[in-house]
């Protein structure tokens, strides 16, 4: 697993991909930090929360080539023929992308140091948002890896990852619209308004329950919920398992 991790991690820096991803992240983080600094008040928690919005751009960039490129070049055959488990392949690749994210995060660490040097505060709420940031990064990278496993075209992989992440980020909005639509439909077919509204609210709540952003919102206030982190971890593991199954299926279909 370490060999795959090392190979994948270094490959980010043997091609422009890693530098471009870090550069975009640096620019965005720098913009948010500068905007706060110029206003005389820096909340690292807010900065990290804002940066989570850019998962939708950065994650597809760093995951699109993880498996799709191997398939395109035909080097994926090595995973099936060398004495390495597919689990190690999946874990090594996801850890490499995760490590790249950690490198990107050094920008925020510099911002924290500057903030403290300028008499600002780095409170427990900021620590909470950083914990959530890394758990979400793991979850979204797993989604991106899965997207990369189902195609041999990097662009398609990036688009699929983008759609996965976008849907996840918009779950609350989707929940609201679905709830409203269901309420309207129920009312239209003659269900009384309170029952229709109750059904709409239930559907809205059910969809919103899946929203990882809503689940982890209290971390920024210093309220840490283990169940929210467990949820993010589980979703990440689910996508890793799906990736593993895609590779496993291919291994046994090679003949």
């Amino acid at each position: 697993m370490y060999a795959i991790f090392k190979r994948e991690f270094l490959s980010y820096f043997r091609s422009p991909v890693g530098y471009v991803a870090i550069s975009i992240f640096s620019f965005l983080a720098g913009f948010i930090f500068y905007s706060q600094f110029a206003g005389g008040s820096v909340n690292i928690g807010s900065e990290v929360i804002s940066l989570r919005s850019f998962f939708v751009i950065i994650v597809p960039i760093i995951t699109m080539g993880l498996l799709a490129e191997d398939k395109k070049r035909g080097t994926e055959i090595l995973y099936y023929t060398t004495p390495v488990s597919l689990f190690s392949v999946v874990a090594g690749k996801v850890l490499a992308a995760f490590a790249l994210y950690a490198v990107m995060f050094l920008n925020v660490v510099i911002h924290i140091i500057v903030t403290l040097a300028c008499g600002g505060v780095f409170g427990v709420g900021a620590v909470g948002t950083i914990i959530v940031f890394f758990f979400m990064a793991f979850m979204f990278i797993s989604m991106g890896l899965f997207a990369s496993a189902i195609t041999d075209n990097q662009i398609v992989s990036a688009i699929v990852a983008f759609i996965f992440i976008l849907i996840t980020q918009l779950l609350s909005v989707i929940g609201d619209y679905t709830g409203t639509a269901v309420t309207s439909v129920a009312s239209a077919i003659g269900v009384n308004s309170e029952s229709a509204s109750a059904v709409g609210t239930a559907i809205r709540s059910a969809i919103s329950w899946l929203d990882p952003f809503a689940k982890t919102q209290d971390f920024r206030l210093g309220v840490f919920s283990v169940s929210a982190l467990f949820f993010l971890l589980c979703i990440g593991i689910l996508f890793l398992y799906m990736t593993y199954r895609v590779l496993e299926k291919k291994r046994w279909s090679q003949a």
């Binding site: 409170g123 427990v124 709420g125 909470g128 209290d218 206030l221 210093g222 309220v223 840490f224 919920s225 283990v226 169940s227």
Partner: peptide, 8 residues
């Protein structure tokens, strides 16, 4: 039960 308030 597994939610902890660490705010200052």
């Amino acid at each position: 039960a597994m939610t902890f308030d660490f705010s200052d």
